[in-house]
Nucleic acid binder design. Structure first.
Length: 469
RNA sequence: GUCCCCAUCGUCUAGAGGCCUAGGACACCUCCCUUUCACGGAGGCGACCCGGGUUCGAAUCCCGGUGGGGACGCCA
């Protein structure tokens, strides 16, 4: 049997980091086993689903390079199929109409909570042999509920968490179709996973409680159609924010596209996410392809993992160093433009990137650090005061004069600075630091001679003149 | 409240009863490299939640406690 996995987000917001990891693991499992990865958009919550959110999810998947073999499928386009299945359940007696109103149900839930009972449907409209049902009210459109077994237990061997067993007495009769006829999540999932031949359902931890209900529905369906099988389940623990708190829309959860904006490479995000909750011995740095070859469910940690930006930064720095120069040039041009910096021909951008790419954690840092090549920097006042002392200004002025006749190459520039240093009986930094501050605005840079060579003679002299005024 | 899940350095993790004096990575600290800051290199600090069992032997298995998390919708 070929492996088929799916990622099934609901389009009520962007693709966040937790969803991205779920997608990545599902993708990797399919790739590892030569199977198919399917994208399914669960948009049955008409009130909250938006086309923008669908697009945001698609964009996120694309940015991460998570390609799907089938889909995207949209549940709202499968209405006929759901209604057909619901009818067969109604016919078979595994589903029934429920005329309890929302208000009635809310009141019931409130009462149960207040009395420290488990909130659940009271089974008022559940048909039972020998039970007399109330007369259906005229003014209420019924919802349809699944008739969950009341005896015994539901158990499955979770591929991450091991055996999980839940008593049916804990489960109530969930609604499979709303009063307006639209089917609900738990039901659609069951029909889709079954119809789409999903073999392993890999999803977030928060679905553990849905699993026994889904298995029960699958079993009920299997009694009608014997070809229906229960898939295997793997529940991934959640990702916590850096503060150890749950990530939510209100708290810390950001779109994966935000990482793009913040200057992270998709390779770094993928690598980081892969390593968050999964391991392959001591391996830390590996590609998406390598991940797909190594991936297995056995090495997933069942406990929640805390997001750590520092480690992401480290990986990102690594991938920036490895990145293709042409890619970086295009990317950094875009980011510099966003900083209102025009990349002129005067200074080679690829040379500037090469000078700085080993020093940046993010692409934004990289862009910001080389901006001074294209626009004159504002000197950091602290650095200026420390390094640009009155006596050194005279030496810099003399050096600038000497620099006018230098053949503008790194070696020659270095030689000239060296002369100024020895002539005045100084140490190299005494001269290099003020130059650094004048030219770049700050006290940290690569070799000052390399910086000067790249900046160009005219610009170097102009900046020195300006600074000494 | 009820049910379910989880528990190794600050963080991500290795660990399948003896290979563990608990390994790696990020972060942090020290030193080296050096023209400053980074990069790189070498070291260092730092953990099996607690209590009972089982066993010759437990980070690993079992039970209990504690702590954390999730779920209890005509959301997904």
């Amino acid at each position: 049997m070929t492996v088929r996995t799916r990622f099934a987000p609901s389009p009520t917001g962007f693709l966040h980091i937790g969803g991205a990891r779920t997608a990545l693991f599902s993708w990797a499992f399919a790739k590892k086993h030569g199977g198919d990865f399917i994208l399914r958009i669960e948009d049955t919550d008409v009130a909250r689903s938006t086309p923008e959110a669908v697009q945001a999810i698609l964009d996120g998947m694309q940015w991460l390079g998570l390609d799907y073999d089938e889909g995207p499928f949209y549940q709202m386009q499968r209405m006929d199929r759901y209604k057909q299945v619901i009818q067969t359940m109604l016919d078979a007696g595994s589903a029934y109409y429920c005329y309890s109103s929302k208000d009635e149900l809310d009141a019931l839930r409130e009462y149960q909570m207040a009395n420290k009972l488990k909130p659940r449907y009271d089974g008022k409209w559940r048909p039972e042999t020998g039970k007399l049902l109330p007369t259906p009210p005229q003014d209420i459109l019924p919802a349809i509920r699944f008739k969950n077994p009341q005896e015994g237990v539901v158990a499955w061997n979770d591929l991450v968490k091991g055996r999980i067993e839940i008593a049916n007495s804990e489960l109530d009769d969930l609604i499979v179709a709303r009063a307006d006829g639209t089917p609900t999540y738990n039901f659609c999932v069951v029909v889709d996973d079954s119809d789409m031949g999903i073999t392993q359902v890999i999803r977030g931890d928060d679905h553990v409680n849905n699993t026994p209900r889904q298995i029960n529905m699958l079993k009920a369906l299997a009694e009608i159609d014997a070809t229906i099988k229960v898939p295997q389940y793997a529940h991934l623990s959640m990702i916590l924010g850096s503060d150890g708190q749950k990530l939510s829309k209100r708290h810390g959860a950001v779109s994966v596209m935000q990482y793009d904006d913040d200057g992270y490479l998709p390779e770094a995000v993928i690598n980081y996410l892969a390593r968050l909750g999964w391991s392959h011995g001591d391996e830390e740095v590996f590609s998406k392809q390598q991940f797909a070859q190594w991936f297995d469910l056995d090495h997933i940690t069942p406990s929640a993992a805390q997001f750590n930006t520092e480690k992401l930064n480290w990986l990102n720095a690594h991938y920036i160093k490895q990145a293709d120069l042409e890619y970086l040039v295009a990317d950094i041009t875009k980011r510099l433009n966003q900083l209102n910096v025009d990349v002129s021909e005067r200074v080679s951008l690829s040379a500037a990137i090469n000078l700085y790419k080993e020093r940046a954690n993010t692409l934004n840092e990289l862009a910001a650090s080389i901006a001074y090549f294209y626009q004159r920097p504002i000197m950091d006042p602290v650095a200026e005061e420390k390094h640009l002392t009155t006596d050194i200004k005279l030496i810099i002025a003399a050096l600038a004069e000497a620099l006018r006749n230098v053949d503008w190459q790194t070696e020659a520039i270095h030689h000239e600075i060296e002369s100024a240093v020895t002539m005045n009986g100084l140490k190299f930094p005494k001269v290099a630091m003020p130059l650094r501050v004048i030219l770049t605005g700050i006290a940290q840079s690569p070799s000052i001679d390399q910086v000067m060579a790249l900046l160009g003679k005219n610009e170097v002299l102009a900046r020195i003149e300006l600074a000494l005024k």
